[in-house]
């Protein structure tokens, strides 16, 4: 009997020792795209373990809902998606996962675009004559850092719902992420003077630069104090550009570019010879210098247009992990702006 008791005690102690070395369970977060997972990581830090479905160099419209993705979702505590008609492959995956916690409306489901002011919301009836149209508005919010900050709030709420014990940690993580994003967007000094909320509001309204330019401050204008991505993007502010697809609409809107034409004749419709001719004519007429193309689109047509007109086709990853070395949201925007500036400088 004594031996048995000793044996049990040894086992219990060994288990306790093993338990002491174990890491606490992390919240399993799955993003429909890597950007949402990256934000969850920024907010949750070591409290979360993130994965994602569409890869950074993959067109998020077209993802085959494979069984292994359903398996990934079956273990998830939190699933983050746009919640609108970008990832039409998400509903069958949710159904197939058999995970009631991530069903639409459940506490582990986050619609990242909820409450956001989206571009391109149809004001009249919609039909397929407009191409593969998004009936709730343009879902490519990752090309807008300001809207992504708002989406981060939705992600924070989701994390707090599935892990209420660490509510304050997520709040702090969100505050830190928001501050760093705004500083990276507008520069520290301007954020200190004007405030991050207002700067974001002005940027979304399209009146930021006008306002800063009109406000006298310490012998100059507030525009002199503009820093961050907004300052770095000033060389291409006001430029006319060509984009392959509507996923650059937010970026152009925020950084003051004007998209003259898309390479796709309608969203989701491959370019036709006639439309390519029109694009070439537009480039020549408007003396357009750059064309933005997500790196998952075919390169033949942009290259052909480039050869014919001299326009610079810039192939950019649309998401985090879309190219090696781009592992955070900050690195993504740094890369875009630096690449566009380099292209304009002829590098």
């Amino acid at each position: 009997m004594k031996r048995i008791m000793t044996g049990i005690a040894v086992i219990v102690m060994a288990m306790a020792a093993m338990g002491a070395g174990q890491e606490p369970d992390r919240v399993k977060v799955v993003g429909s795209v890597p950007d949402f997972a990256a934000i969850a990581k920024e907010i949750g830090g070591d409290l979360v373990e993130v994965s994602w479905i569409a890869r950074g160099n993959q067109d998020p419209h077209f993802v085959l809902p494979k069984p292994s993705y359903a398996q990934m979702l079956s273990d998830a505590d939190l699933f983050i998606t746009t919640g609108i008609d970008l990832e039409m492959w998400a509903p069958p995956l949710i159904d197939k996962s058999r995970n009631p916690n991530i069903l639409e409306g459940a506490q582990g489901y986050v619609a990242a675009t909820a409450g956001l002011d989206l571009l391109g919301v149809p004001t009249h009836g919609v039909d397929r004559s407009a191409g593969d149209i998004h009936v709730y508005g343009n879902p490519h919010i990752q090309t807008c850092p300001v809207r992504l900050i708002e989406a981060a709030n939705n992600i924070k709420i989701g994390l707090q719902k599935v892990d209420p014990d660490n509510e304050e940690a997520y709040e702090e993580g969100y505050r830190s992420f928001t501050t760093r994003m705004r500083q990276a967007m507008f520069g520290e000094e301007l954020m200190e003077i004007v405030g991050g909320d207002l700067l974001c509001e002005l940027a979304i309204a399209g009146s930021l630069i006008g306002f800063l330019d009109s406000e006298q401050y310490n012998g100059g204008t507030l525009l002199d104090l503009l820093g961050g991505w907004m300052r770095e993007a000033m060389p291409f502010r006001g430029m006319k550009i060509i984009a392959y697809h509507k996923n650059w609409e937010y970026f152009a809107d925020l950084f003051g570019m004007r998209i003259i034409e898309f390479v796709e004749p309608k969203p989701g419709i491959p370019p036709t010879a006639r439309h390519v001719k029109k694009v070439i004519d537009d480039i020549e007429r408007h003396e357009i210098e750059i064309m933005l193309v997500a790196n998952y689109f075919e390169k033949n047509t942009p290259r052909r247009i480039e050869e014919r007109t001299g326009v610079r086709a810039i192939f950019l990853p649309i998401s985090v992990t879309g190219e090696p070395g781009i592992d955070t949201i900050f690195e993504l925007y740094d890369y875009w702006i630096e690449t566009i500036n380099n292209a304009l400088a002829g590098n």
Binding site: I193, V194, G195, L198, E201, L202, I204, A205, S207, G210, F211, E215, Y217, L222
Partner: peptide
Amino acid sequence: RRASLRQRGQQQARG
């Protein structure tokens, strides 16, 4: 001064 500036900014942002 900043409060006044922010107020003007808000007016401009919101119209």
